[in-house]
Simulated assay, not measured.
Amino acid sequence: MDIGIGLPALRPDPELSITAWARRAEERGFASLGTIDRLVYDNYEPFTALAVAAGATSRIRLTSGILLAPLRADHALFAKAVATLDRLSGGRLTLGLAPGGREDDYTVGGVDFRRRGKLFDALLERAVQQWEHPGDGVGPAPATRGGPPLLFGGNSEAALRRMTVHGVGWVGGASGVADFRAFLPTVRQAWQNAGRAGEPRLLGTANFALGPDAEQRIRDRILHYYAFAGEYAQRSLTAGLITPDQVAREVAAYAEAGCDELLLMPNGGGLEQVDLLADAIGL
């Protein structure tokens, strides 16, 4: 199982360098760098953060885990931005996509929340067409032929449909390995029913904070971020990892469940979080 680490993009410390974080993550052997996405929140815009990370590194993959795709109302421009990032990073981009559940993001973004599913489908159709046939005047062509790999988050029938039509796999939420494991039979059955060859790629996500004040940092950030989500906020907090032993056990549990890649998202702290996490998982 590959292990990725999130960029310090959520309620970011302006003194903490994303370039230094990305370089250190690559040096320590992490497989990927990840981001989250919100509009009405204090977080870095994902494409911008990943572009900065791409420029500072040469090997580590870049993953949006996840990107709220329907907020990108200009579908041709979205496809162009993705192709540009994929091209400039040398084909290191993987897109995790979902519609999201926060209406305030859509209100501020001027996008109809109730139509986000239809907008998502339209965006995918346009983007895939543009990546596969860049000769229509809208370039550049992505480095990855046909566009970067797409993973889809969510537990709905629509999410599974998008995965089987356009994607290479599925992204699980950060509420713990039990929730991840419980939904895998449904993901695999949808893949099989659609006649897709092989197996879907499975990406898990988890929150971590290590070192002094880890428990307080992860509590503050998770409860603040998921304040709207009721019971899910508490499940996500319970699933947060705050000791090296917890990290090691959770990594082993995700690997045993069949996860292909686990993306561990930081919650506060400085550059030392990269080394603390790498040490905890033996990198």
Rank of each mutant, 00 (worst) to 15 (best):
G270Q: 11
D245A: 09
H166R: 15
A227L: 05
L97Y: 11
V274I: 13
V177Q: 00
T19E: 11
G268D: 08
A214Y: 09
P14W: 10
L262G: 10
G282F: 02
L202D: 01
G91L: 10
L262S: 11
R72G: 05
Y232A: 13
A280F: 06
I36W: 10
L184Q: 15
A257W: 11
R219N: 11
T94N: 14
Y41N: 15
K118E: 13
A253E: 03
D121Q: 08
V251M: 04
P142D: 14
L264W: 08
F208K: 11
S58W: 06
Y106V: 01
G96Y: 10
R196M: 02
G146P: 11
R201T: 13
V251S: 00
L71V: 01
A83V: 08
A143G: 12
A73I: 14
F47P: 01
L85T: 05
R24T: 05
E125A: 15
L264N: 03
L88Q: 07
E125G: 15
A159H: 02
S156D: 08
G4Q: 09
P99L: 07
E157Q: 12
D260E: 12
L68I: 14
N155L: 10
D136L: 13
V187M: 03
T63N: 11
E45M: 06
F120V: 02
V168E: 14
M163V: 04
V138I: 10
A190N: 00
P185V: 06
A178N: 09
R196F: 06
R219Q: 10
H75E: 07
N155S: 10
G269Y: 05
G6Q: 10
L77D: 05
R181N: 11
A25G: 06
T84A: 14
R196V: 04
L203D: 04
T19N: 04
G270A: 09
F152I: 04
R23Y: 03
C259E: 07
A122R: 12
R61P: 00
F228V: 07
P8K: 04
L71G: 01
H166V: 08
E103L: 09
P142N: 15
N267S: 14
M265W: 07
P70K: 05
N207G: 06
L67P: 05
E103V: 06
H75I: 10
I5A: 02
K80P: 07
F113E: 04
L119I: 07
G169L: 00
L202A: 00
